[in-house]
């Protein structure tokens, strides 16, 4: 077999490959740009950004788990104005492709406000709207747990933006398909899933939760099968593209996600353990494609028999 083609098109924008570091595990890119040329990535989703600056939750915010971790960072970020004035110019120096802007909020108006501002930024290619953060109260996930609320956020954001809007969904729901469909009907250009699964650890010595916020989002390779299942379910129920994520750490995982129906694949917790994880996955993709006789990744999306 000759040259393989790793290009995919996500909501009208071509990516050199489907590998996308997930929001919250890649900052605004420049920490990783010190380690390798991050232009090898398809794109990346930057740290979840809100209207106002946020410190996030008290520490400890991190807990070790078997084949994964729990985080309860709580959307720490400098707020949209500083992201635009300070983080994006710094990002532009080390990354020269369209970037995915990840947005969170505490009201429908918050989401619309932040998305409208980021939509005007030249480098922003997509808006990834997080209606699924498990670590904040009265916001985030509460918008992603009912089809009506998710649709309301989608509509409000679509009304004030021009760029593709991808709604990031929570797995902590009874029926993710109905929520994905509601977003599609409300005008979403894509769906990304899954955010972390709500989890908890307890310290045997202190008999207290390890995480100060008691619970947090469970991620890492342990959740990969759940993510594949949900990506499969959603991809077969909607016509808009799906970005798959959850426990992806190898090129094989990327291909499995794509078989399930993902157009692009985000990599999260793996970046925290191996800072070169995404670079290594990108480099390994051609080998795995050849092994499984895949000439073109884009023709392979949703190819599960």
């Amino acid at each position: 077999m000759g040259k393989v083609n790793t290009k995919v098109t996500l909501c009208g924008i071509e990516l050199d490959n489907p590998v996308v570091p997930a929001s919250g595990t890649f900052g605004y890119g420049y920490e990783f740009a010190e380690l390798y040329d991050i232009n090898c990535l398809g794109t990346f989703s930057f740290k979840g950004t809100t209207k106002d600056p946020r410190f996030g939750n008290p520490t400890p915010r991190i807990a070790e788990c078997t084949a994964g971790m729990i985080n309860a960072v709580g959307l720490q970020n400098p707020g949209v104005d500083k992201v635009i004035s300070e983080e994006l110019p710094r990002l532009a120096k080390c990354f020269h492709k369209p970037v995915m802007a990840n947005v969170s909020g505490f009201s429908v108006e918050d989401y619309a406000y932040t998305c409208e501002k980021l939509d005007k930024e030249a480098q922003v290619g997509w808006l990834e709207v997080n209606v699924s953060c498990p670590n904040v109260h009265g916001g985030g996930m509460s918008f992603g747990t009912s089809p009506e609320a998710a649709a309301e956020v989608t509509k409000a954001v679509k009304k004030v933006t021009t760029k593709p809007v991808i709604i990031k969904l929570s797995p902590n729901v009874t029926d993710i398909v109905s929520i994905a469909k509601a977003c599609e009907e409300a005008g979403a250009d894509g769906i990304s899933l899954i955010n972390t699964m709500l989890g908890m650890r307890i310290d045997l010595r202190t008999r207290k939760p390890v995480i100060a916020n008691k619970m947090g989002g469970f991620s890492g390779s342990a959740i990969f099968p759940v993510a594949v299942r949900m990506v499969y379910q959603v991809a077969h129920a909607v016509k808009i593209p799906v970005v798959g994520m959850g426990g992806v750490s190898t090129a094989e995982d990327v291909i499995e996600m794509m078989l399930a129906g993902a157009t692009a694949v985000e990599v999260g917790a793996a970046n925290l353990v191996n800072p070169y994880a995404c670079r290594d996955i990108v480099a390994d993709l051609p080998r795995v494609m050849e092994k499984y006789r895949i000439e073109s990744l884009s023709e392979f999306i949703g190819g599960v028999q």
Binding site: G24, T25, F26, F55, T59, R61, V73, L272, P275
Partner: peptide, 27 residues
């Protein structure tokens, strides 16, 4: 000392407030 996710500034797992703004214990 703080529980860390990555240890190199990516995850914001070990942040603290200081007089001169939020800082990451790892960075």
């Amino acid at each position: 000392e703080e529980r860390m996710g990555c240890g190199f500034g990516a995850c914001m797992g070990c942040s603290c407030k200081t007089v001169t703004g939020n800082k990451r214990i790892c960075k």
